[in-house]
Design a protein around this nucleic acid. Structure first.
Lengths: 196, 196, 196, 196
DNA sequence: CATGAATGAGACTTCATTCAT
DNA sequence: TATGAATGAAGTCTCATTCAT
């Protein structure tokens, strides 16, 4: 039976993903050796090269997997707020941002991992995500209906994303004196101001 | 004469700085070998270890040196605008930011180098800079005289710095479809909105 | 077949042992480079570190291997003398000592290697040797049956071993004017006197 | 005045001797770097090479200096015992040996230093010592007057010296279960037996 | 005499990748 | 598919020694 083999294959891949994620976030990508990954995953070294080109290929795959899940959950959070009556655009954007902030508060190491390994390539792959595309479209449309052109709307989104990301990273990962919780009100005020 | 030795020493350090900067920005810190640095600097390998603990010590020293010079020049740019009559606070902050943006447009690789090697440690060292402290104080005072408390003012500054940094990095280094020049108007509008 | 791999492994280890022994005894441990060892063994440098922690780990392993073999052969020599009727205790000890002396006469460099790298740790490992423990027990028992307590017997053995070792080393390795052959009668007389 | 310069020179040599001795005995010859020696001595690195060929030249010089002083003191101890009436030959030899044992009990590290760096070369230099030659001559003469030939006497001395040295080293430096104090009675009994 | 910055050979070690089994 | 022993290029860093000052 073929499925047994395929299942076995998936198990090994998952083990490698999990072991690598644990190591990447705890000791960093640079300090993680292929040897450590396969040892922790309980597979042979050759097996690693059966499924991944190299360490950085695996880093990318892990980040995309994690980011996709995060985006879907954040959109879900906005949808639920809308169900209970929240229809203010600004607030919806802030709800979305807040989901990210709260998530990264609990997953500092993942935040660091993503930030240090960010590339446009990766960004694009995340954007290929169906639902994400829908959310972006909604954002743009809001502006269009208020007399702002698409290009400008895209740029404002870009600024907001960059700002939220950087403030999160600087507050959470770098140990700056400004904790993310104390930053939140000003951060969300800034989002509202940029959108307004 | 002792000065001959001292002078020689400075020359070697400068050569190492220059050679390393060239390599770090062109092929990246990771891909730069100590061997390459000393070969390009025209000094012996031991000389490197006479002045630097390791590769990352040199990275830090180069970043601090470059950042300090940049900050001083940006402040100088603001001072000159003030000489010719510009006294609007928002505009002064934007002038400062614009100096950074323009500089990094011409020094993309330095921007990448700084971003990838950022740490709170390094940030603090930059802040020990005398003039920088003065500029920060001026920023805070402006808010104080307009009824905003110091803490809030500091957080707004933190957001602006994070935002400008991230937009620069994303626009310039990651090859996003939003070029920094097309982003500038929206970026400066955002600064003004956050300050207002 | 798995045995092919296992066999190959033993071959590599043996090659490394042999090459290292040759170098250690001919040019000294200090002057022997890992590079030389692996080159002479015909294996890659990484293979060395697959089996040994560092150079000194290999030195220890070689010494233990050689010493164990030597002890077994010396005991064998005594056993054979006993077979042909020698049952005088003193003579048995001298037979044992003589085997060592003759062996080291032919293996000066090994004697030097052992002496320069002696440690209590190593001594203990040699003593873990089964047969050696038996020989020591026999020695002690002889004294016990002649009215000497165990402690004293152990100390006499310790003195004899130290004395024979030192005289061998000084005569053979240091190039003293007293050749080991001319020393033998006096050395064995001393053993007999200490035992008596 | 020439003497001032010469004095200065001696001071530096002494400082180097002292610093090196401290390092050799505390961390070992192998782990002691020229850099450490000159830093601890408070002189420049070049100065080291003004007075010593290399590290091992200095080791030899230190050992000879220490050994010469020790021998003179041991002979002095025998002379004093003779003054108070001790004229038994065996006891005089044991007195001499005991002085060594007691000294090395308090100077374990020096014992290790000497043992690990022993060479016939060094041994000879120690023997060039005037008083030592006299003591040896006395030893030989005792045997001659009791019907033993010079050669045999020399060999017995050689055995005794080797034995005492090895037992000291093994008991004191290697941390064998036989402490030197508990070994002494048996060791001196052995000396007496060999002489008898 | 004294200095100590500079040297550079080379020691030791790591680890991504391959490939015979 | 899976393994893991073997590889060896590439790396970091040390330290005895020299020599211009």
């Amino acid at each position: 039976m073929k499925s047994k083999i395929l299942e076995n294959k998936s198990i090994k891949i998952k083990k490698l993903h999990d072991a690598a994620y644990e190591l990447f976030t705890s000791i960093g990508v640079h300090n993680t050796k292929i040897d450590d990954i396969v040892k922790n995953a309980g597979v042979a070294k050759g097996t690693f090269y059966l499924y991944f080109k190299d360490k950085y290929d695996l880093v990318d795959k892990i980040i995309i997997k994690k980011a996709t899940a995060l985006i879907q959950n954040a959109l879900q959070a906005v949808a639920e707020k809308q169900k209970v009556g929240q229809d203010d655009f600004s607030n919806n954007v802030i709800t979305f941002a807040d989901y990210f902030v709260e998530f990264f508060k609990d997953n500092q190491k993942l935040l660091a991992l993503i930030y240090k390994n960010l590339s446009w390539d990766l960004y694009q792959k995340a954007m290929e995500n169906q639902e994400m595309g829908g959310a972006v479209k909604t954002f743009i449309q809001h502006f269009n209906t208020h007399g702002t052109d698409t290009e400008t709307a895209e740029r404002r989104l870009f600024i907001i994303v960059s700002m939220v990301g950087a403030v999160c990273y600087n507050s959470i990962v770098l140990e700056t004196p400004f904790g993310i919780d104390s930053m939140k009100p000003e951060l969300y005020r800034s989002i509202a101001r940029i959108i307004a």
